[in-house]
Amino acid sequence: MRKKYRILLAKPGLDGHDRGIKVVAAALRDAGFEVIYTGLRQTAEMIVEAAIQEDVDAIGMSILSGAHMTLFPAVLDLLKKRKCEHILVFGGGIIPDEDISKLEKKGVGKLFTPGATTGEIIEYLKKALKEGRKEEAVF
Protein backbone atom coordinates (compact mmCIF):
# COMPACT_ATOMS: atom_id res chain seq x y z
CA MET A 1 0.00 0.00 0.00
CA ARG A 2 1.31 3.41 -0.87
CA LYS A 3 -1.49 5.51 0.56
CA LYS A 4 -1.00 9.27 0.70
CA TYR A 5 -3.29 11.83 2.26
CA ARG A 6 -5.00 13.83 -0.45
CA ILE A 7 -6.31 17.30 0.33
CA LEU A 8 -8.33 19.58 -1.92
CA LEU A 9 -7.76 23.28 -1.36
CA ALA A 10 -10.15 25.80 -2.84
CA LYS A 11 -10.78 29.46 -2.71
CA PRO A 12 -14.52 30.01 -3.16
CA GLY A 13 -16.20 33.37 -3.32
CA LEU A 14 -15.36 36.46 -5.23
CA ASP A 15 -12.33 37.92 -3.48
CA GLY A 16 -9.07 37.26 -5.25
CA HIS A 17 -6.65 36.91 -2.35
CA ASP A 18 -5.01 33.56 -2.77
CA ARG A 19 -1.67 34.24 -1.12
CA GLY A 20 -2.67 32.58 2.13
CA ILE A 21 -4.03 29.44 0.60
CA LYS A 22 -0.99 29.05 -1.64
CA VAL A 23 1.25 29.19 1.41
CA VAL A 24 -0.84 26.47 3.05
CA ALA A 25 -0.71 24.40 -0.17
CA ALA A 26 3.09 24.55 -0.28
CA ALA A 27 3.39 23.74 3.43
CA LEU A 28 1.13 20.70 3.11
CA ARG A 29 3.11 19.48 0.12
CA ASP A 30 6.31 19.84 2.10
CA ALA A 31 4.72 17.84 4.90
CA GLY A 32 4.13 14.97 2.47
CA PHE A 33 0.49 15.55 1.51
CA GLU A 34 -0.81 15.42 -2.04
CA VAL A 35 -2.53 18.75 -2.49
CA ILE A 36 -5.00 19.42 -5.26
CA TYR A 37 -5.37 23.14 -5.74
CA THR A 38 -8.42 24.15 -7.76
CA GLY A 39 -7.97 27.89 -7.84
CA LEU A 40 -10.15 30.93 -7.33
CA ARG A 41 -13.88 31.60 -7.57
CA GLN A 42 -15.09 28.09 -6.95
CA THR A 43 -18.74 27.32 -6.30
CA ALA A 44 -19.75 24.70 -3.73
CA GLU A 45 -20.79 22.39 -6.60
CA MET A 46 -17.40 22.67 -8.28
CA ILE A 47 -15.58 22.01 -5.03
CA VAL A 48 -17.58 18.92 -4.13
CA GLU A 49 -17.42 17.49 -7.65
CA ALA A 50 -13.64 17.95 -7.74
CA ALA A 51 -13.29 16.42 -4.27
CA ILE A 52 -15.19 13.33 -5.40
CA GLN A 53 -13.20 12.90 -8.62
CA GLU A 54 -9.95 13.25 -6.69
CA ASP A 55 -11.07 10.99 -3.84
CA VAL A 56 -9.66 13.38 -1.26
CA ASP A 57 -9.58 12.87 2.49
CA ALA A 58 -10.29 16.51 3.26
CA ILE A 59 -11.44 19.78 1.71
CA GLY A 60 -9.88 23.01 2.91
CA MET A 61 -11.52 26.30 2.01
CA SER A 62 -10.22 29.77 2.48
CA ILE A 63 -13.00 32.32 2.78
CA LEU A 64 -12.26 35.97 3.33
CA SER A 65 -15.36 37.40 1.75
CA GLY A 66 -17.68 36.81 4.71
CA ALA A 67 -19.66 34.12 2.91
CA HIS A 68 -18.59 31.39 5.32
CA MET A 69 -22.07 30.89 6.80
CA THR A 70 -23.44 29.89 3.40
CA LEU A 71 -20.45 28.21 1.73
CA PHE A 72 -19.43 25.75 4.46
CA PRO A 73 -22.99 24.43 4.99
CA ALA A 74 -23.52 24.29 1.21
CA VAL A 75 -20.47 22.06 0.80
CA LEU A 76 -21.55 19.82 3.70
CA ASP A 77 -25.03 19.46 2.20
CA LEU A 78 -23.70 18.48 -1.20
CA LEU A 79 -21.29 15.97 0.34
CA LYS A 80 -24.20 14.44 2.22
CA LYS A 81 -26.26 14.23 -0.95
CA ARG A 82 -23.45 12.34 -2.66
CA LYS A 83 -22.97 10.11 0.40
CA CYS A 84 -19.46 11.43 0.89
CA GLU A 85 -19.71 12.56 4.50
CA HIS A 86 -16.39 10.87 5.20
CA ILE A 87 -14.61 13.85 3.62
CA LEU A 88 -13.45 16.24 6.32
CA VAL A 89 -14.22 19.91 5.68
CA PHE A 90 -11.98 22.47 7.32
CA GLY A 91 -10.98 26.00 6.52
CA GLY A 92 -9.64 29.37 7.30
CA GLY A 93 -10.52 33.01 7.04
CA ILE A 94 -11.75 35.95 9.01
CA ILE A 95 -14.53 34.23 10.90
CA PRO A 96 -16.04 35.49 14.20
CA ASP A 97 -15.90 33.07 17.18
CA GLU A 98 -19.67 32.66 17.42
CA ASP A 99 -19.85 31.67 13.76
CA ILE A 100 -17.06 29.19 14.29
CA SER A 101 -18.98 27.37 17.01
CA LYS A 102 -22.16 27.43 14.92
CA LEU A 103 -20.34 25.91 11.96
CA GLU A 104 -18.55 23.33 14.08
CA LYS A 105 -21.91 22.23 15.43
CA LYS A 106 -23.06 21.66 11.88
CA GLY A 107 -20.16 19.30 11.28
CA VAL A 108 -17.44 21.53 9.90
CA GLY A 109 -13.94 20.63 11.12
CA LYS A 110 -11.46 23.08 12.53
CA LEU A 111 -11.53 26.67 11.28
CA PHE A 112 -8.28 28.59 11.43
CA THR A 113 -8.29 32.33 11.87
CA PRO A 114 -5.52 34.74 10.81
CA GLY A 115 -2.39 34.13 12.85
CA ALA A 116 -2.66 30.34 12.77
CA THR A 117 0.58 28.74 11.61
CA THR A 118 0.91 26.18 8.84
CA GLY A 119 2.40 23.89 11.47
CA GLU A 120 -0.88 23.94 13.40
CA ILE A 121 -2.82 23.07 10.26
CA ILE A 122 -0.50 20.16 9.47
CA GLU A 123 -0.72 18.84 13.04
CA TYR A 124 -4.49 19.07 12.96
CA LEU A 125 -4.84 17.22 9.65
CA LYS A 126 -2.45 14.46 10.63
CA LYS A 127 -4.40 13.85 13.80
CA ALA A 128 -7.84 14.15 12.23
CA LEU A 129 -7.06 11.84 9.31
CA LYS A 130 -5.07 9.28 11.25
CA GLU A 131 -7.96 6.91 11.78
CA GLY A 132 -8.41 6.52 8.05
CA ARG A 133 -11.64 5.70 6.33
CA LYS A 134 -13.82 2.72 6.61
CA GLU A 135 -12.86 0.29 3.84
CA GLU A 136 -15.78 -0.64 1.61
CA ALA A 137 -16.32 -4.07 0.09
CA VAL A 138 -14.89 -4.11 -3.42
CA PHE A 139 -16.46 -7.30 -4.74
Binding site: R29, D30, A31, G32, V35, I36, T38, E45
Partner: peptide, 18 residues
Amino acid sequence: FTGGALLGDRIRMQDLTT
Protein backbone atom coordinates in the same frame (compact mmCIF):
# COMPACT_ATOMS: atom_id res chain seq x y z
CA PHE B 1 12.31 14.60 -0.59
CA THR B 2 8.96 14.66 1.16
CA GLY B 3 6.78 12.59 -1.19
CA GLY B 4 4.26 15.42 -1.18
CA ALA B 5 2.89 17.03 -4.33
CA LEU B 6 1.09 20.13 -5.48
CA LEU B 7 -1.34 19.18 -8.24
CA GLY B 8 -2.53 22.30 -10.02
CA ASP B 9 -3.78 21.27 -13.44
CA ARG B 10 -7.43 21.59 -12.42
CA ILE B 11 -7.00 25.38 -12.21
CA ARG B 12 -7.19 25.40 -16.02
CA MET B 13 -10.17 23.07 -16.10
CA GLN B 14 -12.52 24.73 -13.63
CA ASP B 15 -15.62 24.84 -15.78
CA LEU B 16 -15.18 21.29 -16.98
CA THR B 17 -15.47 19.82 -13.48
CA THR B 18 -19.24 19.96 -13.26
